[in-house]
Structure formats: C-alpha cells, structure tokens
Design a protein around this nucleic acid. Sequence first.
DNA 1: TCAGTAAAGTGAACGGCGTTAACTATGGCA
DNA 2: TGCCATAGTTAACGCCGTTCACTTTACTGA
Lengths: 242, 242
Amino acid sequence: MTAPTRRERLRTATLAEIKDAARRLLVTGGVEAVSLRAIARDMGMTAPAIYRYFPSLEALVVALAGDLYDELRREIEAARDAAGADPGDQLVEMCRAMRRWAVGHPAEFTLIFGSPAPGLREFADQCVDPGHPGARFGAVFLTPFVALTRGARLPTPPAELLQQRLGGHLAPLAAKHGDLPIQVAYAFLSAWTRLYGLVAMEVFGHLGWAVDRPEALFETELGTLLAQFRSADPSPDGVPRH
Amino acid sequence: MTAPTRRERLRTATLAEIKDAARRLLVTGGVEAVSLRAIARDMGMTAPAIYRYFPSLEALVVALAGDLYDELRREIEAARDAAGADPGDQLVEMCRAMRRWAVGHPAEFTLIFGSPAPGLREFADQCVDPGHPGARFGAVFLTPFVALTRGARLPTPPAELLQQRLGGHLAPLAAKHGDLPIQVAYAFLSAWTRLYGLVAMEVFGHLGWAVDRPEALFETELGTLLAQFRSADPSPDGVPRH
DNA sequence: TCAGTAAAGTGAACGGCGTTAACTATGGCA
DNA sequence: TGCCATAGTTAACGCCGTTCACTTTACTGA
C-alpha cells in the first residue's frame, strides 16, 4: 500500500466532485436531470472530459447507485447500533431508519429501489453477488431477523408446504445463506416485500388516495408486523391474532 | 348526441393511432423511448403535428397512463367475473390477474405503478378524485374485500388502537368510502401494499437476489394473505366488530 | 357554387442531450 | 531533457421537445 501519487489524488478528487455534482442534480431534478453536460457545467468543465472517469452516463449513474446503497446501509447500521441488544428493537429502528432515509431522500431512494432507469436493471440483476452493494444492504437486515425468529413459531405455512411450493426457487438466497430454515427465509421475504411496498408507495406518491400522513400507517404496520415475529408471542396455529 | 362528422372521425382515429404508436414504443423501449419524433416517424408524420392533439409529450404520456389503468381494471373485472360468487375466490383471481398483467406488461405496469416519470407525479396526486382512472381501479378491489371481511374477525389491532393511531389520517379514503370500518380500511391498505410490494419488486427486478421463480413466492404469499381474511373465523353474531 | 375560415400538417430553427474524434496541454518519469 | 500517458479542449453528429411561420385541406354559410 504505497502512498497515492499526486496524479492519483487529483483523479480521485475529480471523481468525487463528479459524483457530488451528479448527486446534487439527482436531488433537485430526479435521475433525468443528471446529464453529463450539466455535471460538467457545475464543475467548470466540458462534458467529454467526464469520459476520462466514466465510460458513459449510465455507468456514472450506476456508480452513484452503488454509493447510495452504501450510504443507506451505514444509516441503517447506525440505527441498529443505537437500538440496544434486542433484535426486535433493532429491526424496528432499522425499518424506521429505512423509511426516514427514503422519505428524506426520495430521489435517491427512487434511483436504487424504483423502476430501474436505463442501466440499473443490470445493476439490480448483479445483486446475487454477495459483494454487490445491494446484497450487503440486505444482509444487514437478515442477521437481526434470524436472531429475532430463533425459537419463535413463525406465522407462516408449515415448513413442508413451503418446501413443496417454494423450496426449489430460493436458490439465489440459499447460495448465500444456505443454512436458513425455509420458514425463516419465507418470513424474511414476506416482511421485506411488505416494508418495501409500504415505503415505495409512499415515496412514489401512490398512497395519496388513501392516507394523508403515511407515517401513521407505517408505524401501525410496523407494529403488527413485528408482533408476528416476536418470540414472546408465538401464535398457536400460525395465524396471528390480536 | 349527433353523429360525429367526418372531421371528428378522422381526429379520433389519428388520436388513437398516436396512442397506439406511443404504446408500441413504451413496450419496446420503456417510457424514455416514447418520443414525439419517434411516434411521428411511425405514423409518417412530423413531430409538431402531434401538438394538434396533445399540448406536450408529458400530457400524451399521462393520457396513455390513464388508458392503461382502464385496461388493467377491465382485465381484473374480467377475472373477478370469471371467478364465481365467493368474494375470496374473486380476490384471489383478481390478484392473479393483476400480477399476470404486470409481468406480461412490465413497461405498462412501470408507467402507472413505478417511480413516477415527469408529469405522472401530478397524475398520481389527482387520484383522490373518484373519477380518476386510478381511483376507479382501486374501487374494484374494495368491493369484494368488504364482502369478504364482512362478519370476519380481522387480523388487525383493535379498532380503538387503530382509531387512535390512524383515525385522523384516512381522510382521502374516508371521503369516498366514509362508511368503511377502520379495521377494514386498515386491513385493505395493508393487503394492498403487500400485493403491490411483491408485484413491484418482481417487475422492477428487485427480487433476483432471493428468488428465481417469483410466481411461487406470489402464490404462497397470496395463500397466507387470504387465509387471514377468510371469514372462517367470524364473530358469533355475524356482525363486523368495530 | 364558392368564398371564407378553422383545422391539420409541414419545414426550419433553437437549445438541450450523449457520444465520438481529433487535437492540445501537462505532469511524471527514464 | 525527452518521452508519453493522462486530462482536458473544440467541433461535430444525430437525437430530443418545442415554437413559429407557413401551406394545405376540409368544412361551413351565404
């Protein structure tokens, strides 16, 4: 690990400046406002110069998306670390941090979790690789979820039924976490899609027809969701009651 | 209601042709492939001519989105009508029709349910108006859901708690369906966000890290979802509790 | 029937975009 | 000192939405 040369320092500084400008444009005008010419204008440069740093606008946007995954993950890790030792508390605070970040950074959330802009479809597909920023993001949720559900009777169909219906189709997940019981895997997926659906609908403006303060719905849903998984309250027959 | 003149007939025909071409471009290249010039090329026209029919490209895309809502609604109504009289069966088939349409028409689904393209944010906001295509779409689900949950003990927090947490924030929904018990309203919203999350994640490619056949997950989730609402466990007097 | 008019469509132009190609300046190294 | 990879420039091509001035076409009323 030798010290970076002057050239290298300049290069990484310019690279960061490009991504900063791109982020600024993303925030103020959405992904369609991110253009090479606008970035270059912001930096006092000309557009073709950016091709020394990224092979295309799409590649730049993909790199930005990777950074955003990492930023969101760090945010959620911080919420987890501030929540104490109970995995249920940790998950609640992580979900809240997720929504808080999404609502506070709608353009960024849209970029990584919305309908994929050109080039981001491939980025999402590569998420099976454990080193992918999205995969590392997801793994953060999995650990406390496993701890929470350990020993709990999960509100899912019985394992045999899941195995029959779903067993052969969880290959991507099993490749990374082969030791996951199928009930836990299914419960995790179910919870994740619920969380995603709620947050995404709010950020995309698809809840306005029903709710005028989505946070209230989120908190309610978070409460019922967690109640289903708390090991203190195992439901006797798999159907949650209140 | 007089017969349409020849001019009017030509006009509506051209209008339909424009939307057809736009739809074709949407399907093959996503919303960013829909351009006035490409549409005009497809029709053997020049781009400015389209301004006789739409004030802008955005307006054209919004009109297309409205048509798509109607198309999806008709598809789902057909599935309901083919499912017999049981509201549970109806809902299952409607959800399946929803996913089938979404997976079969990813670009169209993305346009109306994805992160909003320019101009579609406002379109989504106007969804509070009952005449809005999106509102009419949603209403189709509500009717059998209310029938299904009538007399059932819903797997939600008790009505008092919901009233306290959520009561004041369902104004948009209450404006159209003021007679809806809060437990039913909340259960409907919860179920809808679950369905949305699952289908959207599949269509947007955000499930590839976990599942290689999303339909299996969808069917499993649909089963557990419906099991929660089937009136197999009605309150003793057949009257909804709230 | 025919003049007048409103609608439909054209062509040129403006400024924006991604991208490529040819070219210039410059920092770092043998 | 001389070389050369690197970073940056300008010019250009072909897209794009949109506007404007213009022409063509179809309908209407006297």
